[in-house]
């Protein structure tokens, strides 16, 4: 006789089996996606990697799953997988990457083809190791790639990079010097202000506006940090007649704001 209790037991068993089957299916799909990733090239169906997208989202609040995924992604990064595959990996690590991913990502920084995607992940990762890797990497890279690393350190407002950035203001490549000035402006510390102040007179003609903009940004940071006097000094410098009109107006606005902050 099929009792009500038997029915409940059967239903429970069926649900459990269903869950197990569904987990097994998900695992299989994930394995298949990682297999596809190893040879993934531009133009291939992006949906073949969908199981990895889903696993990354599902790993929210599941540290073990996150670690497992991270390890698999890093393995692809260290392999000879195509550029499109590594591009994908960096995007995923930008979401779940931890200090464990940093060495593999840092290794991409000097690579002209993958440096940006390495930063794409490192810049988003909140751990100190990520910003330290970019700081260390800055001295080891050249040209446009260096500009990118400097930009990322500016985004992270890495005060520990200040001395190195100050040195780069003298770089013969105007893109590097301009990026260094902008990063110092974003850092916005008294040390950065001092360096940018000295740079205003020295900046080559093509970098005058970039230098002034960085100095204005620095003043805003100082003002927001309650350092009104330091900010005022900057604004007074930039309000002088040797500056273009829009810079003078910006500086005059800054002076008004600084005057309102006692």
């Amino acid at each position: 006789m099929f009792t009500r209790m038997n029915g409940i037991v059967c239903l429970t068993m069926a649900l459990l089996l269903g869950c197990v089957a569904s987990i097994a299916t998900a695992d299989e799909a994930l394995d298949k996606a990682f297999e596809a990733l190893k040879t993934y090239k531009w133009g291939q169906d992006r949906a073949t990697l969908g199981a990895i997208d889903a696993a990354v989202v599902a790993s929210h609040k599941d540290d073990a799953a996150k670690k497992d995924l991270e390890a698999k992604l890093v393995a692809v990064l260290k392999s000879d997988a195509p550029q499109a595959a590594k591009d994908f990996v960096c995007r995923k690590l930008s979401l779940i990457g931890s200090a464990a991913s940093v060495p593999a990502l840092a290794a991409l920084l000097p690579d002209e083809k993958l440096s940006h995607m390495g930063r794409y992940a490192l810049e988003r990762m909140p751990c100190d190791e990520a910003v330290a890797a970019m700081r260390d990497g800055m001295g080891k890279v050249k040209g446009l790639v260096k500009v990118g690393v400097i930009n990322s350190l500016g985004v992270r407002r890495d005060a520990a990079s200040t001395a190195a950035l100050v040195g780069l203001l003298e770089d013969s490549d105007p893109q590097i010097a301009g990026a260094a000035a902008a990063a110092l402006g974003a850092i916005g510390s008294p040390d950065a202000a001092k360096a940018l102040g000295a740079y205003q007179a020295k900046a080559p003609k093509e970098l005058k506006l970039a230098a002034a903009d960085a100095y204005l940004a620095c003043a805003e940071r100082l003002l927001a940090d309650g350092k009104a006097n330091e900010a005022k000094m900057i604004y007074m410098t930039l309000a002088k007649p040797d500056q273009p009109k829009h810079v003078r107006l910006a500086a005059t606005r800054g002076l008004l704001a600084a005057a309102g902050q006692k």
Binding site: Y120, E123, L144, G148, N151, V155, A217
Partner: peptide
Amino acid sequence: RMLARTMREPWGLA
């Protein structure tokens, strides 16, 4: 982490 995207060099926000 999804609130920002990292710009490709030489482009930046600062």
